[in-house]
Simulated scan of single mutants.
Amino acid sequence: MPRLTRRPRRSRARWLPLAGGVLAALLAAWINSPLVDRVVGAEGARVAALPSAPPFQAGERVLVLAPHPDDETLCCAGMMQRARAAGAKVYVAWATAGDGFELDAAVTERVVRPRGQALRDLGKLRAAEARRAAALLGMPPGHTFMLGYPDGGLFRLFTTSYAQPYTSPRTGADAVYVPGALTPGVGSTGRALEADLGRVLDRVRPDLVLAPAPQDFHPDHRTLSYLAMRLMSGRGQEGRLRYWVVHGGLEWPLPKGLHPAEPLTPPPLARHLPWARVDLTPAQVARKRLAVDSYRTQTRLLGRFMHAFVRRNELLSPQPSDDSPREQGTGP
């Protein structure tokens, strides 16, 4: 009787490239489909109908508050260039060093489950990338402030860890450790973060503060928005705030990848804010792409998302909510 032999099972790994190729082809087909073209085209017409934001003025002092390194570039690299071209002075403050992205640290530091030192090393690397991006956008070192509080922990600082230091479960740090921080070694408390933001406001004396909108999906962004509103209203200067969004809803912005000739459309989570359009020149768009690409730790994993912000315009809202009345039965 002939001996039966089992057919060798194909390795699952052999199918992964094929599966990845099929998924990529389907995604590309969807992005390039007529339906997406119609959606993007309709949104483009809406962007064109938005009012233009008031121009920056010579002598103005403009402060960008960024939750993480790269947010300032995604939201506002074009505006920062426009402000400087108009003769304004531009400043940036980063609330965190972006040390909470574990997958990023796994790739960058080549460790399976990054914790502690690997993530602190990532924070130092991202802080260095932030300084490079700011330099590309024309800002001298004295115009940047790294605060260095825990990535992913700002809401805890704002609430339960306002007075007592918060220990990051990712880095293990309970104090600011990033070289060049505004107050190195200070405990990670909400009180210390608020004091640092107050120091930045005292030094810059901004005429305009560009801050994340409270509708942004990321909790660090929302928390920094609340802090900015509280501090500026406490100074009687809430009218100097302007708002932007980076995490604006599922799949926004579309299409993913680099499309510099396309408009940046209003984010779904903040669609009803009174957005204004900031048009960019081709040179400003090109410089924004260089600043985005300086964040190599991020673009290797999130490049298609980040490049989707390199568009012919940026968006800014003069207020954090839409107070205009709506007809009954309309959408939210």
Rank of each mutant, 00 (worst) to 15 (best):
L4C: 05
Y91R: 01
G44L: 04
G116H: 11
R300P: 00
R131D: 09
V111I: 14
A25E: 00
L122T: 08
F217N: 04
G257T: 05
Q328E: 11
L119D: 04
L250I: 13
A29F: 08
M232H: 05
A286G: 07
G148R: 12
A48C: 03
R271H: 13
E238M: 07
P51K: 13
E314R: 15
T189M: 02
P268D: 03
D99Q: 10
Q81D: 02
T167H: 00
L65Q: 07
P169R: 08
A291T: 11
L18P: 00
T108A: 14
A24I: 01
D70R: 02
L136F: 07
L136K: 06
Y295A: 10
R230S: 12
G142R: 09
V92H: 06
V22R: 09
H272R: 15
A128F: 05
D322R: 13
R304H: 13
R82F: 02
T281D: 03
G138V: 06
A308H: 10
V292Y: 12
A97M: 05
V285M: 07
R170N: 10
A211P: 02
D220F: 10
G331R: 14
Q57L: 15
R38H: 12
L125M: 12
M1A: 15
V209F: 13
K89S: 14
C76M: 15
G100E: 05
P17F: 09
P34L: 05
E314K: 14
P179C: 03
P260Q: 05
R7D: 00
A13N: 04
E194N: 04
P274Q: 11
V64T: 12
A118K: 09
D279H: 09
A134Y: 09
E129H: 06
L154E: 01
P318E: 01
Q237W: 15
R110W: 04
E43S: 08
D202F: 04
L193H: 08
Q164Y: 03
P184A: 03
V36W: 11
G21T: 08
F305Q: 06
L4Y: 06
P320K: 09
T159R: 15
V200E: 05
D151L: 11
R12C: 01
G59W: 10
Y149E: 00
W275N: 03
S225T: 05
A49S: 14
V246D: 08
R326D: 00
T330P: 01
A77Q: 07
V186F: 03
R38L: 13
D323T: 14
G116A: 09
G152K: 11
T160R: 15
V176K: 12
V92C: 09
H247E: 10
P140W: 05
Y149F: 15
A29Q: 08
W94P: 02
P165D: 01
L273P: 04
R126D: 03
L316A: 06
V246P: 01
L65G: 04
L154T: 05
Y162N: 05
G248T: 09
R113G: 05
L264W: 07
V245T: 15
A24K: 07
T299Y: 04
G331A: 15
A42Y: 13
C76H: 11
L147H: 08
Q298H: 14
R304P: 02
R38I: 00
E129C: 08
C75Y: 10
Q57M: 11
L23Q: 09
V204Q: 11
